[in-house]
């Protein structure tokens, strides 16, 4: 699993990359009450705002971590946004994307590097 400075995790699944937010991010956000997902088959550029997460406290975005195409979204989050708090790195994945360059994943942090990053 790879991690971004925006507190997203990326997991390679076959030729797709699954994206979600980290436990640290979920804890910082607080109780998630609303999730807005992108349309499948959307082409995105790294840095695009692709999802909205609203917690009891504030709204946040999930940014596309890589260039590519959103091929699948986790519709369960729309009905049960609280899953983001209960299982952020498992059931509460946000979207799967087909990326143009899997090598681009290498620029992101390993789990240990992310732990150091969060510890600041």
């Amino acid at each position: 699993m790879k991690f971004t400075e925006d507190h997203e995790w990326l997991r390679v699944e076959g030729d797709l990359v699954v994206v979600g937010i980290t436990e640290h991010a979920a804890e910082q956000l607080g109780d998630v009450v609303f999730v807005e997902l992108p349309e499948p088959e959307t082409m995105v550029t790294k840095g695009d705002e692709v999802c909205v997460i609203e917690s009891v406290k504030a709204a946040s975005d999930i940014l596309a971590p890589l260039d590519g195409e959103i091929v699948e979204v986790n519709g369960k989050l729309t009905d049960k946004p609280a899953m983001v708090n209960t299982d952020p790195t498992g059931a509460a994945w946000f979207f799967k994307m087909r990326v143009e360059d899997m090598g681009a994943l290498d620029e992101y942090m390993s789990e240990d590097e992310y732990a150091d990053f969060v510890a600041g």
């Binding site: 607080g30 109780d31 009450v33 009891v56 406290k57 708090n85």
Partner: peptide, 12 residues
């Protein structure tokens, strides 16, 4: 204190 470990939703 903005919240305790219980969290905003359950505190409410």
């Amino acid at each position: 204190p903005v919240q305790y470990p219980m969290g905003v939703l359950r505190e409410h």
